[in-house]
C-alpha cells in the first residue's frame, strides 16, 4: 500500500494500475461528471507515472496518486474556464480580493452548515480520496456511520447552495447539474 521503489518496472507499474485505477477513475468521474474526461485523466496520470518512474520516490503511494488525480481534475476545470474566456489578459483583475472574500463567504456558509463530524468525514472522503474503509479505521467508527455522514454532508451542501447562493454561477454549475 505504502511502497514504491525508486525504480518502477513493468510488473510493478501494472500492479499499481490494477490496484488503483478504479478508485482513481471513480474519484475523477464524480468530480468532472464526464466519463471521457475521467478516462483521459486516469490515462494521463499513469503515463506520467511511467515517464517519471526513474526519479520517483514516494513513501505514500495512495496519497501521491490522489494528489495527482486531484491536480489533474483542477487542471481540467482551469482549462474549461480558460477556453470560456474571450480575451487574453494575464493580469489579475482588480476585483480579485473581493472575489476571494465572496467565495470564502459562500464556502464558509455552506460548510458551516455541516456538523463538525460530518465535515471532517466529508473532507477526508471528498478531498483526500480516502475510502469509507480507511476513514472508518482512522476514526474508529463503523463503516455505516461514515457512509451516513458522507451522504448527509453532500445532501446538505447541495440544498444549501441551491437555495442560497446567488454568486458564482460557475461555482455552482460545477456542483449542481
Amino acid at each position: 500500500m505504502a511502497l514504491i521503489p525508486g525504480n518502477v518496472d513493468e510488473e510493478t507499474f501494472e500492479a499499481i494500475y490494477r490496484e488503483y485505477w478504479l478508485r482513481l477513475y471513480d474519484f475523477a468521474l464524480a468530480k468532472v461528471h464526464d466519463p471521457d474526461v475521467a478516462e483521459e485523466i486516469v490515462q494521463d496520470l499513469f503515463v506520467n507515472l511511467w515517464e517519471k518512474r526513474k526519479g520517483l520516490r514516494v513513501t505514500n503511494l495512495s496519497g501521491y496518486l490522489f494528489v495527482a488525480v486531484r491536480n489533474r481534475i483542477i487542471d481540467h476545470y482551469k482549462q474549461r474556464l480558460f477556453s470560456d474566456l474571450e480575451t487574453v489578459d494575464a493580469v489579475t483583475a482588480p476585483d480579485y480580493p473581493l472575489f476571494l472574500d465572496e467565495l470564502e463567504n459562500e464556502v464558509k456558509q455552506a460548510m458551516g452548515r455541516l456538523p463538525d463530524k460530518t465535515r471532517e468525514i466529508f473532507m477526508l472522503n471528498r478531498l483526500e480520496g480516502k475510502s469509507v474503509g480507511e476513514i472508518s479505521e482512522k476514526l474508529n467508527l463503523p463503516k455505516r456511520t461514515v457512509e451516513y455522514h458522507i451522504t448527509q454532508g453532500l445532501r446538505q451542501l447541495k440544498t444549501f447552495l441551491r437555495s442560497v447562493s446567488t454568486f458564482l454561477p460557475l461555482f455552482l454549475a460545477s456542483i449542481i447539474i
Binding site: A30, K31, V32, R70, N71, I73, I74, D75, Y77, K78, L81, F82, L85, T92, A93, D95, Y96, F99, L100, L103, E104, V107, A110, M111, F122, M123, R126, L127, L154, L157, L161, L168, L170, F171, S174, I175
Partner: peptide, 30 residues
Amino acid sequence: NFHTLLSRYRSGECTEREKHLVEQWFSMLD
C-alpha cells in the same frame, strides 16, 4: 478570477487562504 485562483493554486504560489478555498470548493464538486 476563478481561473486566477486555480492557476495560483496549481503553481503553488497561493496563500493558505486560497489553498483552503480551492480545496473546499473541490470537495463539493461531487
